[in-house]
Design a protein around this nucleic acid. Structure first.
Lengths: 228, 228
DNA sequence: AGCTTTCGCTACGACTCGTAGCGTAACTCT
DNA sequence: AGAGTTACGCTACGAGTCGTAGCGAAAGCT
């Protein structure tokens, strides 16, 4: 029995793999028996976000989430290994809202995405949860992987798409070496995401039009240097 | 050694400093009675860092720190309001190690500081603690202030000093408007700190010479555009 | 039907929290 | 030296959380 094997494996492993078979990845779901309630899944994630807003990270408890979602605490533990994994899933969805607007120029496109990202980070459930799970992930490699695949890597599409558009417009030269191009994309991603996060969460200053203008100017000017 | 110096200095300084570093209660330093043990302070902060390495943030408990430090749990609560404040102080000292090396050019100076910062972030007690307290600070304004004054603002000196040197070398034009210059300094700070943190903790990729080269190139090229 | 899995519920031991009370130690001022 | 004041270690406590186990009932499948 495949499922039995999976369960035994999961039980003998610390966290991580248990989640693998759940919501994020299409899993070898058992064909028989009572299926898991999709409504419960949605209610739990929604309740988690609400609890994050009200309580923050450290005071959020599994029991409280269960009560808010109208499910039993045991149901939570049947699906998620703990607070970390639950919160990652609860927040990951929010990042899919990000889109690359077509504002006509590379600078305007970047500015648009930066403003969206900043707005997302200003939502209390996002800002509270994101840093917390990143902090936990420094001691928990599976959790970091989960964050990377569920949140971070998905957003790199924005960088790639923006660059493709810029190429089409003739705003950026095409990098000959694909490896170098990939490294540049990673660099841009770290700079953009890092700067906005730091500005918002550490410096606690607003990401307004004026800051975005200065930032995009810096980024584009620097990009020309890097690709030269 | 460094810690001992800091503690002794703090104790020999007038009230404000000590109170601010240790507890948020603005009570005047009593001139009479048994003084607080500076050795206990040092032992507690050291134990906190050790516990962070071993346990991480979420599993670190006040009782464990007290045991490691060889003091009573009540002593911890007499000095710090809770885990957040304790960890901020325990980690803040580490950031004072950062120095701006004089490598002859602005690019080399920036590269040197970035490498130092990355090395600092790679220490397990730093990476684990920093993100955790930032996460908590999103729901705790006094804590954020504590982080800003104890850690962040103190490092801005690096940006200011680096720029002053670059001016002296004639590598950068002097910005006429002091307000604009201040905004530019803040922008640089957010970009540098944010990018390094994101690269290290989120992307989990090494900040090596090659990355630093690309990053400084981007930053300096962008800086020229911003100040143009 | 029979089988399988999930569900809600209750209960549990183990742990952490933050505080209170006590007697003692350390230092200052008179 | 003595009195006054504060910090210290220790113990104990109620409250809260954790993660798990066991139960009967519900919901799907063949």
């Amino acid at each position: 029995m495949i499922f039995a094997v999976v369960c035994l494996t999961a039980l003998s492993l610390p966290a991580g793999m248990v989640i693998f078979m759940q919501s994020r990845t299409p899993s070898p779901l058992p064909r028989t028996g009572r299926p898991r309630s999709a409504a419960a899944d949605a209610a739990i994630l929604e309740a988690t976000r609400a609890a994050l807003v009200d309580l923050g990270w450290s005071k959020l408890t599994m029991g409280d989430v269960a009560t808010r979602a109208g499910v039993a605490k045991t149901t939570l533990y049947r699906r998620w290994a703990g607070k970390n994994e639950l919160v990652v899933d609860a927040v990951a969805v929010l990042f899919d809202e990000l889109e690359l607007p077509d504002n006509g120029s590379l600078a305007a496109d970047i500015g648009g995405v930066v403003l969206q990202f900043a707005a997302l980070l200003n939502r209390p459930e996002t800002k509270t949860a994101l840093m917390a799970v990143v902090a936990e992930s420094t001691r928990d490699e599976p959790l970091r992987e989960r964050i990377r695949t569920s949140i971070v890597d998905r957003q790199k599409r924005l960088v790639l798409e923006g660059r493709a558009r810029a190429h089409a417009r003739g705003e950026l030269p095409l990098e000959a070496d694909p490896a170098a191009a990939a490294r540049t994309a990673d660099l841009i991603f770290d700079v953009v995401a890092g700067a906005v996060v730091h500005r918002t969460l550490v410096s606690a200053e607003p990401v307004d039009e004026e800051w975005v203008d200065r930032f995009t100017t810096l980024l584009l000017g620097g990009l020309a240097s890097v690709q030269a």
